[in-house]
Amino acid sequence: MSNTEIILNVDDNEPGRYATTRILSRAGFQVIEAGTGSEALRLARSASPQLVILDVNLPDMNGIEVCRQLKTDPHTASIMVLQVSATNVALLDRVSSLQAGADSFLIEPVEPEELEAVARALLRLHRTEAQLRRSLAERELLLREVNHRVKNSLQLVLSMLSLQGNEFREAGAREIFAKAIARVTAIASIHERLYQDNDPLSIDMHTYLNGLCAELARAGIGEERHADLRTEIEPLRLPTENGVSLALIVNELVMNALKHGRPVDRPAIVHVKLRRLDSGQGQLIIADNGPGLTASASREAIVASSGLGSRLINMLVRQLNGQLRIEDADGYAVHITFPLQPAPTWGPKS
């Protein structure tokens, strides 16, 4: 046992409180005392004990309510609570204590050996949980550092691609490099968001895809005329790997729509929609009001040919275990339906 561990003994009965403190002190524990619920809450916050031995009957508030407040306060939630009582010993009383967050319950009178043994067991559990919280905190810092370094590395790649692309005189080569830069930018921006997010294991698709589409609209890929890029992104958090796949798909299809999906007789409109279906699947739709495949054979290159964009999209759809469907009426639309994977839970340090 660490000599910094503190037990808070809460009992309004002075002789009983003295007896419990004496047992614990003789066992080598550091013990502080409280006679009321409000005093117990104050000492729990100021002295940071690792264990509270808490009587149910207190003069100002019920010990079960004290336990509930301890367990719902982030500053005291990790404290172990041993509820004790000589009168409130019915099954319902014990269940109520445990439902309020108590870690154990003892019926008084308690033999000194049992009290000491239970106290040591709960303190061992507290040390184990504390170590887990430290490990989670270290893991969080590591993930953030990894995402930060990946983002910086990708920014270096972007700079190198930009410098290399400026050396090409041929328009086709410059366009290839521009697409490569856009793909790397999409990935880099995800890692930047993961570095800033409270949850580095998943990505907020609503915020990210809206930002990505705004960047693509400002870039004006291959066309100086204005295009109205409209987004309808439902609030969804997806595992990072799924978020990266969707982001790259959106990047490819929106760039294609901005270049090939502009009608000649009316303003260009591109829709990007992401929603949750009742079937538990997700659906991504990217549609424009352009000429469609029949009037522009080059549009087919994005999904039906052996080009890099086509191969990339089909590979990403397979990674999502999704299905791709094309509509070519009143424009051009790609529908991608995929099973929604639950985002991994992230336990921030408490």
Rank of each mutant, 00 (worst) to 15 (best):
M1N: 08
M1C: 07
M1Q: 14
T4M: 08
E5V: 11
N9L: 11
N9K: 09
A19Q: 06
F29W: 13
I32L: 12
A34Q: 05
S38Y: 04
A40E: 01
L41F: 01
R45E: 15
S46Q: 12
P49S: 07
I53D: 01
N62R: 06
G63H: 03
G63V: 08
Q83T: 12
A86Q: 13
N88E: 14
A100V: 04
D103N: 15
D103E: 11
L106T: 09
E114W: 11
A119G: 07
L122I: 08
E129F: 13
E129V: 12
R134D: 09
A137Q: 11
R144W: 02
V150N: 04
V157E: 09
S162I: 05
S162G: 10
F168I: 10
R169Q: 14
R169H: 11
G172D: 13
I176K: 12
F177M: 15
K179N: 13
I181K: 12
I181P: 02
T185W: 00
I187D: 13
I190W: 06
Q196C: 05
D199E: 13
P200K: 08
I203P: 04
A219C: 09
I221V: 10
A227F: 01
A227N: 04
L229Y: 07
T240P: 03
E241D: 13
G243Y: 06
V244E: 12
L248N: 10
I249C: 03
V250L: 10
N251M: 10
L253G: 04
V254S: 03
N256V: 03
G261N: 01
A268L: 07
A268E: 03
G280V: 08
Q281W: 10
Q281G: 10
Q281F: 14
Q283R: 14
D288A: 09
L293Y: 00
L293R: 08
S296W: 00
S298R: 14
R299M: 14
V303H: 02
A304P: 00
L308T: 15
S310P: 07
R311P: 01
Q319N: 15
L320F: 05
L320V: 09
N321S: 15
N321T: 03
R325A: 10
V334I: 14
L340G: 07
T345S: 13
